[in-house]
Structure formats: C-alpha cells, structure tokens
C-alpha cells in the first residue's frame, strides 16, 4: 500500500526496522508495534506530557510525532533509562520521596526531570515547578516530584 513506509529506529539500543502506516504516531509505534509499553498516552494532543521521551538527546512528546519522522533516530524510553548517572539518581530520588503514586505520569515526568538536570538546572523549586509544568500529574500534589528533582539538583546533578 502506498500509505506505508519502512523505517529504522534505535530504541534503547535495539535496532528495529518495520513497515508501518504513515499516519501512525510514534507513541503507538513504540507501544503497539515494538512493545515498549513503558511510555504512556494521556491525551494524544500534546498537553499532558505522559508520552514524553528522548529522541537524539531532545525531549519530545511522542504523541505529536509521526513514527515515520523518527526514521533514523535513537530513542530512549523509560525502559532504557540507566540505573546510574542522572537517570539512576532521579529514579532513586523519586522512590525515596514517593514522587509517584499511580505511576502513569512517571515516564514523562522522568524524561522532563532528566532534561532539567542535564541542562544544568539548579536546585530552585520554582524553576523546577515551571520546568515540569508541561507534565500533568493528577495523583500527587507535585510537591514530592519537585522535591525529588530538587534533591538530585542539589547534589550536583550526578
């Protein structure tokens, strides 16, 4: 069919080549075709941030991107986050501060938090609040999340 294309992406270090419908969103491709169900869908219109992940070092909302646009890129989802370094520190800190309840916002929240720390974000609660204001969390009062990111920032990010 004319409306399919073959793409190759590197997800968490694995290379995948698939022929997919051109209209498919990146998040649907990752979840439905590749089984990386760690990234979540909360709105499909770019507002909630649940689908946020890393593509070639950029933080992206994968519901707003077509899978074909990701051809040739390297993607890191929550399943691919290391247990050390910034990602590891943040995961540890999230667990210690109870910065997640249902966990549905967590993949996107972590991606945004990593972006904040990697960009040299400092231990400033207002700035952290502003930075994660593209990520909706309905369960926590945000405070535990802010504190989790803050404590990693305070320790120099890594």
């Amino acid at each position: 069919m004319a409306d399919t294309r073959t793409i190759t992406v590197n997800v968490n270090g694995e290379v995948h080549t698939n022929t997919i419908n051109v209209r498919k969103n990146l998040i649907d491709y990752l979840r439905d075709d590749l089984g990386f169900t760690g990234s979540h869908v909360g709105c499909e219109h770019g507002v909630c941030g649940a689908c946020t992940l890393d593509i070639n070092g950029e933080t992206v909302r994968s519901c707003l991107m077509l899978a074909v646009q990701a051809d040739g890129t390297a993607i890191t989802t929550i399943e691919g986050l290391a247990d050390n370094g910034v990602a590891g520190d943040l995961k540890k800190s999230f667990a210690e501060k109870n910065a997640l309840q249902c966990g549905y916002c967590t993949p996107g929240m972590l991606a945004s938090a990593i972006e904040y720390i990697n960009a040299g974000g400092n231990a400033d609660k207002d700035k952290i609040r502003r930075h994660i204001s593209g990520n909706y969390c309905r369960c926590t009062g945000y405070q535990a999340i802010v504190e989790a990111i803050y404590s990693v920032a305070e320790n120099g990010g890594n």
């Binding site: 169900t37 760690g38 986050l81 995961k91 210690e96 997640l100 966990g103 549905y104």
Partner: peptide, 23 residues
C-alpha cells in the same frame, strides 16, 4: 514509618501493567 513503596521499582522502570499495555 515512611517506608518506601515496593511498587515504585516496577513503575520507575516502565514495567507497569496498565490495561492498554496488554495484548
């Protein structure tokens, strides 16, 4: 005590099992 939740280990590694994750 402020004991840590065991479930966060899974959820922080993208190993949750929400309905839409199941096929």
């Amino acid at each position: 005590q402020p004991t840590k939740r065991g479930d966060t280990k899974r959820l922080l590694r993208g190993r949750g099992k929400y309905v839409d994750d199941l096929t």
